[in-house]
Amino acid sequence: MPRKTISTFSVSEVIHLSPDTFVMHLQGVPPLPEVFAGQFAEVEVPGSPDVFLRRPLSIHAADRERGMLSFYVKTVGKGTRRLSELLPGEKVSVVYPLGNQFTLLNSGKVLLVAGGTGVAPMLMLAQSLKGAGAEPTLLIGGRSASDIHVTEAYHEAAEVLVTTEDGSAGIMGRVTDHPVLKENFDFVRICTCGPDPMMKALAVIAREKHVICEASLENTMACGFGACLCCVVKTTEGHKCVCTEGPVFDTRNLENW
């Protein structure tokens, strides 16, 4: 894994995709360290004295040569709210790249399943898998069409499938209702990020289909690099830090999955 760094970035743009979802583009000094799909960063919430800790955010995109780092974020509390209000030019300290990565298979069909902001690492993952020689399919689920923000880049990297609970886009229902998980299942692996119940349901499906399921967990954490031991998950080998042993886990190694 590349060396972790603390770097100061400058906000280049915050794009609001919906009232509670935004993409934050940061500009740093190139070249950036290599970043792998599934890794995350601990991002400072600047100018916010009532926010004490950094916020762990999945890395959405990274352009090493141009020095760009992007995050796809849902506003859930005061920390992410402040980040959503950042203006171009504001400085943000970022500790990254943190954690492990999704396995990059070099052949076969791989099903990526994202729920809500679980889509954050999926574009990079689809691009990396395609680059490695695998065939990614990306299944994205949301409550309604306003939760689904698929750009041309997604279609270039993967076959894109959508479900919404109200049926306003794609197939009506949850991701687990999508026929791609039922008939003619020909994937060699499932990679997922999103709410725990969704990922647990996918782990069960993967077991039935005899394929590996990799899930990216989102436990709350203080440091992000293995010092505080706050973000643990129960595995078959005891408590493991999500920040250093994860965030991506083979669901067979997670207890009660």
């Binding site: 004295p49 009532d50 004490f52 436990n219 709350t220 203080a222 505080c228 031991l229 129960k234």
Partner: peptide, 20 residues
């Protein structure tokens, strides 16, 4: 020692609680 169950951390005003 396995330590305590998750969640083990809460952010608080100007600080944090832990129960590792």
């Amino acid at each position: 020692r396995e330590g305590n169950n998750y969640p083990r951390m809460a952010e608080t005003p100007a600080g944090m609680l832990n129960s590792v």
